[in-house]
Structure formats: C-alpha cells, structure tokens
C-alpha cells in the first residue's frame, strides 16, 4: 500500500511541475511578444499619456518575471485579472459559462464512454471478422472527419430538412427536459461520434493486446468460453490502458468543444475563449487556456493513478 501511495504522490508532484511549465509557456507567449496591450486597447489614436496611464494601471511596466509571479499568484487565489474587452473580472466571466461547458462535456462523456467500450470490446472479441472490419473502416473515417462537417450535416438534416431541432442551442430560463434535449441533441451527438470512434479504437487495441497473452489461451484451455475469457480474464488487465484511452479521448473533447460551441452558438467557456482571441483579450484568454490545460492534466492524472491502482504488483506492494 505504501508503495502505491508514494507513487501517487510522486505522480501528483509531476503534474504540478508540468502545470507550472504550461503556465509559463502560456503566459510568456501571450505577454512578452510583440504588440503593446495598452496601445492595442486604446487604438492608434490614443495619446501617449493615456497609454502610459493604462500601462501603469495594468502593471505592464513591471519586469516580466514579476508579472508572471503576480499572475500565477492571482490564478491560485482565484483572481484571474480583469477582462480587457469589457472590464469585468475574468473569474466572473468564466464561472458564468463553466457549468454550461461542463454539462456539455459531461453529457457527451456519459453517452460516449459506455458506447465506445462496448464497441471496442466487441470488435476485439471478433477481431478479423466482418463486424470488426466494418467497425474499423467506420471508426477510422469518423476520427478523420472534422467536427464542423458532422455539425453541418446534422443541421442540414435535423434543422433544415426535418425541422425537428433548432440550429442554435438556446436554453431558455424556464427550461424543461424537452428544452434541454433540444439544445443538447446536436452538439452532444457531434462530439459523441468523433469521441467514441477514437475511444473504441483504443479500447479494441488494449483488449486485443491482452487477448494475445498466454493466460487468455490458458483460460480457453481450461474450458472457459470466449466471452468469459474476454470479460473475466482479459478485461481486468486492460483496465489501465482503457482508462488511459478514455482520458486521452476526453482531453480531446476539450478541443472539440471549441468548434461545437461556436457552431451551435452554445454559451460555454470555449466560445468565450474564441471571442477572447478575436478581441485580443489576453487576461481572459490566458485564464481560459489554463482552465483547459488543467482539465487535460487532471484527466491524464486520473488515468495514470487508475493504472497504478489497477496493477496488482503495486497493489500488493511486491
């Protein structure tokens, strides 16, 4: 048990170091390179005095490292600065949108993960069969399709032709179950297809890898049917790689929501971030970027820790 505990602590420590490097990369790209944020905000016609005043107000005259430290300290204490575009606190802007994005991602994950698991396991069990080959072509195509193609096809079919769903996601204040369904159906479906295709492929590979192990042959030779050999013997050993696959895919979801939120005009963090790019609203952009990167790191951390816990060699301290 002690060994596991140490490994997990070490793993968390590594994640924190990684997060620090990431924050430095994000900050220095966004801040130290050309252009003067103050000049940018006020436009070319601004007086030098006004620019200087603004520089002072935003602490832009401090040395870079100090600014980085201040920014990082602010992030840790929940103060991500003030938006340049509309002068509201960044944390306020994000928190208003965060739950929406999490809901979108959550719905997608809840639907896509079990679906992909079943797909992947079935494909592995019948590897080489027609089902497997058909699934291979299908998933291979789906992982290569841009989200906006899927989204436009959905809109064309369900909103334009059939007129079943609105082409934009709008959740009214007094939303009922039906409203939620109407708002979420197309964004979630778009994300699900890309995501499950990829997860199914990785699950299949993980299970197949275990199926080629001698202990699975042994199980078959002990008289266990194929389904039992897969579910009772191979699957427990594939948990580590599968969780890893799920985490990696979900982290892909972080990028996928960017497109989907924009297309369906969905009020989430990702569309906020795209707006921040267009407005060159750096404080908001940096905070959003850190949010996504942290989300990614947490997912990978969960995957690694599950792999550690699922390993009997570590679990029994051997």
């Amino acid at each position: 048990m002690k060994v596991i505990f140490q490994l997990i602590i070490k793993r968390i420590g590594l994640s924190i170091i990684t997060l620090l490097i990431v924050s430095a990369v994000v900050f220095f790209i966004a801040n130290l390179l050309p252009g003067d944020a103050a000049q940018e905000m006020l436009g070319q016609s601004a007086t030098p005095e006004a620019v200087a005043e603004l520089r002072e107000a935003y602490g832009l005259n401090d040395p870079p490292l100090l600014r980085y430290a201040k920014w990082l300290g602010g992030l840790v204490s929940g103060d991500a600065g003030t938006s340049l575009a509309n002068a509201r606190p960044v944390s306020e802007l994000i928190s208003a949108r965060l739950s929406q994005s999490l809901m979108l991602a959550g719905f997608t994950a809840v639907l896509a993960v079990p679906f992909a698991m079943v797909l992947g396991i079935v494909a592995a069990m019948y590897s080489g069969s027609r089902i497997d080959k058909a699934m291979n072509i299908f998933t291979l195509s789906m992982v290569a399709v841009p989200e906006f193609l899927l989204a436009t096809i959905f809109v064309l079919v369900f909103a334009v032709e059939l007129n079943w769903l609105p082409s934009l996601s709008y959740i009214p204040a007094d939303a009922g179950v039906n409203d939620y369904f109407r708002a979420f159906a197309m964004p979630v479906a778009t994300l699900c297809i890309v995501l499950s295709a990829q997860m199914a492929r990785m699950t299949r590979a993980a299970v197949l890898e275990q199926l080629s192990q001698p202990y699975v042959e042994m199980a078959l030779l002990k008289g266990s049917p194929l389904s039992r050999a897969v579910l009772r013997h191979a699957l427990p050993n594939a948990v580590g790689p599968i969780v890893n696959a799920v985490a990696l895919s979900l982290s892909y979801l972080l990028g996928g929501v960017v497109i989907v939120e924009v297309i369906f005009n969905y009020p989430g963090v990702a569309s906020l971030m795209v707006d921040a790019v267009t407005n060159r609203d750096m404080p908001l952009l940096q905070a959003c970027a850190m949010l996504f990167c942290t989300g990614y790191l947490i997912l990978v951390l969960i995957a690694d820790i599950s792999a550690i816990v699922a390993n009997p060699k570590l679990r029994t301290g051997g």
Binding site: I17, I21, V22, L254, L285, F292
Partner: peptide, 23 residues
C-alpha cells in the same frame, strides 16, 4: 521528456488560439 510532457498537455487547439491571439 519532462518538457515534452508539458508541451503535450497544452491541447493543440488551445495552443493555436493563444498563439494566434498573440501574433
């Protein structure tokens, strides 16, 4: 390896958005 792990944990779309906003 550690540095690459850090780079890899910036999702490519997010990285692109930051870069485009800056440059």
């Amino acid at each position: 390896a550690r540095f690459m792990d850090a780079l890899i944990s910036i999702p490519s779309k997010i990285f692109s958005l930051v870069m485009i906003a800056a440059f």
